[in-house]
Design a protein around this nucleic acid. Structure first.
Lengths: 114, 114
DNA sequence: GACACATTTCAACAGCACTTGAAATGTCTA
DNA sequence: TAGACATTTCAAGTGCTGTTGAAATGTGTC
């Protein structure tokens, strides 16, 4: 993953409503969720929701498909995975002993906090 | 980790210079790196660098200590670990089969460069 | 076709983010 | 103490971000 992509994805997630929206879409799974349902859950006006979903889509975090009158949004898990891998590499780069996330078991012994 | 913390950390990382700065600090390890060296590497004016480091510090991603005339910044690995854990939980919530970097285990590719 | 429904597009606005330059602060050395 | 060095603080300007309201687009139903 290119640095610029990572920045875009981070920026897309760095907002309350969007992080919530993504979480809801993760819960919804691959089948996704209509925009209307998202708007209701997030208490956003439809145009505001569209605004945020556009950012998530530009970052590659969600996909859309039409189903009747509804637009169905779904999380793009792959993108999140790539971001996590990128961040993990960033954090561990050359020093795996300092940074061991992802499994839930984090080794902290070697950390020297000032 | 609270959602609001995650948003703050994501926002702190969602910027070119800051992502670069953090990566350099990760490379530098726990001993850290003087601001001046960072400014030179990133080709930032000192005040611009301070601006960005303040944001990283507010997010808990770096710590500072004085050493003579220099301010030594160091990455706070713990914070990055927590963020990664949070994102992993988000992404896999209730559906571990959907969110797994690589196919089986964690895939470790060559380190990405900017 | 006419109408309701679901969502997007457009326009305007307040506020925050990033950049730049100048001045101030804190520390070391002579 | 004077002066240089390292960094921070302050102030001003530009552009982007998120919000809101109104209008437009696309789709199903009668």
């Amino acid at each position: 993953m290119k640095k610029q992509s990572a920045v875009s994805i981070l920026a897309a997630l760095a907002q309350d409503s969007r992080l919530d929206a993504f979480r809801l879409l993760v819960e919804a799974g691959p089948q996704g969720m209509p925009a209307g349902h998202l708007a209701a859950s997030l208490e956003l006006t439809p145009n505001a929701l569209t605004f945020h979903l556009d950012r998530l889509r530009d970052a590659g975090l969600v996909t859309v498909r039409r189903e009747g009158r509804s637009m169905i949004y779904a999380a793009q898990f792959e993108t999140m995975n790539k971001l996590i891998s990128y961040l993990t590499d960033q954090c561990c780069q050359g020093r795996p002993e300092l940074c061991r996330p992802g499994t839930g078991k984090v080794r902290r012994r070697a950390l020297a906090s000032s």
